[in-house]
Design a protein around this nucleic acid. Structure first.
Lengths: 380, 380
DNA sequence: ACTCCCATAGAAAACGTTAACGAAACCGAC
DNA sequence: GTCGGTTTCGTTAACGTTTTCTATGGGAGT
């Protein structure tokens, strides 16, 4: 299934960019050093113009390669710029032009928001694409007081940024409606806003839920529990909706008590699994709203004598990396978060430039079949 | 042991700031919405001045509460600022003043740099303190091409930032020497540069290594292996140095082959553990350079029939959160990374303002005793 | 009453760009 | 040879602050 896109979008979501594959803290070296470190006494566009024998306007136009400049003078000026080591002051640029070339990434006020695998993937994509499009990335955290003081609006009004990407928010975060009048470019990432009044891009959680449920149903599971989280989130509701309708399709009426809130955390997942398995011993599979909860659930189950997947199958959501070593490895719905980050960044910048009106893009998911799922055991 | 500080530093490293404790993705709501969303047609300092019946200079002085303004007019102007919803354009402010009030956080080009628990803790501290000090935080990744194009210098020259915090770099990253002439404020975080020519703040890895080794030696371990990483890093060498000298203190000469590089990764830790245990079956304890490698080592050991800690004790470094659920839980050296982030941010800003000359601060560590260590087994 | 000084505030010059407008020079066409 | 039309580039006014320099008023000192 190709990219579902309500706009005319044909965005390139590839090119993971040059990254050294490893993974932690102090990486072993990559040799490099900038070619020249100029102590360079500040040189302004005026100096360059004078030395090149042209006006400042001409230099400016060369900088923004305005077609009105002849190839000859363009080369001459560029030579001089190079020779003098001139770098335009972007404060002056932004002050006089319309854009700051900076975007902000807004994170929810979680203790470990900066160390989260989910946010990390998104931010990675955003950072890569922003860099490629000549934009800088500011990171902010929407703590209660921050919102109370309207710092999120100040971001625009004081001209810190041209636009904002909001990660990990849902309808409970009422400050989002500050963007409803669409005066300030903002794209909600991996969620949508109820009345579809906000620009957004997100993964196709309905599709993901279908893929997960198809898998479980094909393996013969019928009593399928669910560990969800943040039911106020439209995408979370998508997953739940499909979960119930898929079960109904095969003639099973999922009870209310088959669903437990796992709070998006490992511990919550474990607690939820406990509750599910104690109240429904005949349950043979659990669908989890994210990988963390799935891992917590598996941990609980194994520690209490259940075999995964022989006794109970578990499916997650996210496909966060560096979990390959989990035992058993997790069958999960892969969310293309890196690509979503790229898309979000790209759409936001288009929106800033007025190249697009409404944004509501959806990226397809796919199931990654690993060891935590298996054929449903018989219950007698 | 108090803070070791070569400067006159008495920095407040407390106040974790208001954060909702939970942990993932879409958090359950915190009610909030900005008090007022002004559609506000851009109002500049000139308008305010006119309405308040004063000059722009006066308004500016009120903004920066310059003592030369009388209390009466100050109040009058502030009222008007409030009433008109005026927000100073910080591009203009920065253009005309000396500072941008923005700092950058430079990350190494690792694939998951944005999702790393180690960096996450540091960044969390930095973000909190930067916000408190009225600064914004830009995040950059020092990919090879980035350095080749001197973008790290451009950061200053084009006036994006006043200073940079470098996380996760070591002496192999030769671009760091671009800062040796100390023209551009930069603080190396959690490492130091060989000839001590760069400003830096870091944890006391020597102390940490002592604490870990004291623990193991007291438990009777003598054949102690080590899984290190990035030996080009001065702090890594600190750990290794203390490891060897501590063993020598009790009359043990650690062989070269007792040490293996674990590459800072989980997989590397597992491979290193394998190598150690196969070549030295009599080994009863392993000291690891970080928690990831320790976890990898434990995973390998358990999967291959060793009991931890009964057969082998393992000690880590970092004390990364959300690892409490590991089994067995990890004895590790706690690095005060959040606090280090705060300190780094604070020092950098002092440096920017010229309030401090050289920076080289060290924060103490402490051992967290958990389940992965025990009394050395007898070997016959 | 006159000077001097302090407290207070205004005027104008930066800060370093972009952009709107206008003006030469050159072209071919008539 | 004049005339519109292009190219190509210079002039100048923004952009919204801070800062330096200057000016005014009034009270204290003599």
């Amino acid at each position: 299934m190709p990219i579902k896109n309500k706009n005319n979008g044909e965005t390139d979501l590839s090119t993971k960019s040059e990254i050294i594959p490893s993974s932690n803290q102090i990486v072993v070296g990559f040799d490099q050093s900038s070619t020249a470190v100029k102590p360079a006494e500040k040189v302004s566009i005026r100096e360059v113009a004078k030395q090149a024998g042209v006006s400042v306007a001409t230099v400016s136009m060369v900088l923004n390669d305005n077609p009105r400049i002849s190839r000859a003078t363009q080369l001459r000026v560029q030579k001089m710029i190079e020779r003098m080591g001139y770098r335009p002051n972007r404060l002056a640029q932004s002050l006089s032009s319309k854009y700051t070339q900076v975007i902000a990434v807004m994170l929810p006020p979680l203790r470990h928001a900066f160390a989260d695998a989910y946010f990390g993937e998104l931010i990675s994509g955003i950072a890569d694409r922003a860099g490629k499009l000549g934009h800088k990335m500011l990171i902010e955290q929407a703590k209660p007081q921050y919102i109370r003081e309207s710092k999120h609006i100040e971001l625009y009004e004081r001209r810190f940024v041209d636009g904002v990407l909001c990660l990990g928010f849902n309808e409970k975060h009422t400050f989002l409606s500050d963007f409803a009048h669409r005066e300030y470019p903002m794209v909600l990432v991996d969620n949508r806003f109820g009345n579809d009044t906000l620009d957004c891009v997100h993964c196709d959680y309905r599709l993901g839920s279908q893929q997960a449920m198809n898998c479980l149903l094909q393996l013969g599971h019928r009593i399928v529990g669910m560990i969800y989280a943040a039911p106020e989130s439209p995408t979370s509701r998508d997953v739940i909706d499909v979960y119930t309708s898929k079960l109904k399709e095969v003639g099973v009426i999922p009870q209310e008590s088959w669903r437990v809130d796992g709070l998006f955390t490992d511990e919550g997942g474990a607690a939820a699994a406990e509750q599910l398995i104690k109240t429904h011993p005949q349950m043979t599979a659990i669908l989890c709203g994210n990988d963390k909860m799935a891992l917590g659930a598996i941990r609980y189950l194994i520690q209490h004598g259940y075999r995964v997947p022989q006794d109970i199958s578990v499916v997650g959501f996210d496909d966060i990396q560096h979990l390959a070593y989990a035992n058993p490895s997790l069958t999960t719905v892969h969310l293309p978060l890196y690509e979503l980050g790229i898309l979000a960044c790209e759409r936001l910048i288009e929106r800033i430039r007025g190249k697009v009106e409404r944004i509501h893009d959806i990226l397809p998911t796919h199931l990654v079949l690993r060891e935590s799922t298996g054929i449903a055991r018989h219950h007698h």
